[in-house]
Simulated scan of single mutants.
Amino acid sequence: MDFEVTLDEHAAEYSVIAVRGEVDLHTAPKLKYAIERGANGGVRAIVLDISGVEFMDSTALSTFMRVHDSLKEKGVALRLASPSRAVERIFEVTGFGDYFEVYPSREEAISRN
């Protein structure tokens, strides 16, 4: 599957970004850029729909951490929504699931506002 990242929804309080495919050394910069663009305009949260992520490497985890910390400094929350089974497994093995706000669905992540 080809990598795809889209800004699915942009509201006053939040932006929803959907990611599909593999997040790795080559695609992580595109994801970072999309998140930064979604954070423009005074939103309070970025909801990252990761239901379509088939694979993540250590670069992806590092990118998630850096973006999380950068957004937090700006007062913007990063909420991960609908993790695929592959992502859930990585979070279980690495313990990163405790570092992020992870929601079972996009709707739950949005309603957190």
Rank of each mutant, 00 (worst) to 15 (best):
G75E: 02
E92D: 15
V87Q: 02
K72P: 03
V23R: 01
V19E: 09
L71F: 07
E107R: 15
R79D: 08
L80Y: 03
R37L: 13
P29M: 07
V43R: 08
V43G: 05
Y103V: 02
F96H: 15
I35A: 02
M56C: 12
T59W: 06
K30T: 01
A28C: 10
S82R: 03
K32W: 11
G42Y: 14
I90G: 01
A18Y: 04
G38F: 05
P104H: 14
L71Q: 04
I50M: 06
G21M: 13
I17G: 07
T27V: 02
M56Y: 04
V16A: 05
Y33P: 00
G95L: 05
S105W: 06
F100I: 10
D24G: 08
F100Q: 10
R44P: 11
E54A: 15
S15A: 06
Y33M: 13
P29V: 07
G21V: 07
K74H: 11
L71W: 08
I110H: 13
A109D: 12
E13P: 13
R106Q: 01
F55Q: 14
I35V: 04
S51Y: 00
Y103T: 00
E101N: 14
F100P: 01
V76I: 04
R44H: 06
F55G: 14
G42D: 05
V19P: 02
V87R: 09
R20S: 07
Y99M: 15
V67R: 07
L78G: 09
E54M: 15
V16K: 06
K74G: 09
Y103Q: 09
R44D: 01
L71M: 01
G21N: 09
V16D: 11
V76C: 03
R106K: 15
D24F: 05
G38A: 02
I17V: 12
V93L: 14
R79H: 04
M65N: 03
G41F: 05
R20N: 13
E92P: 00
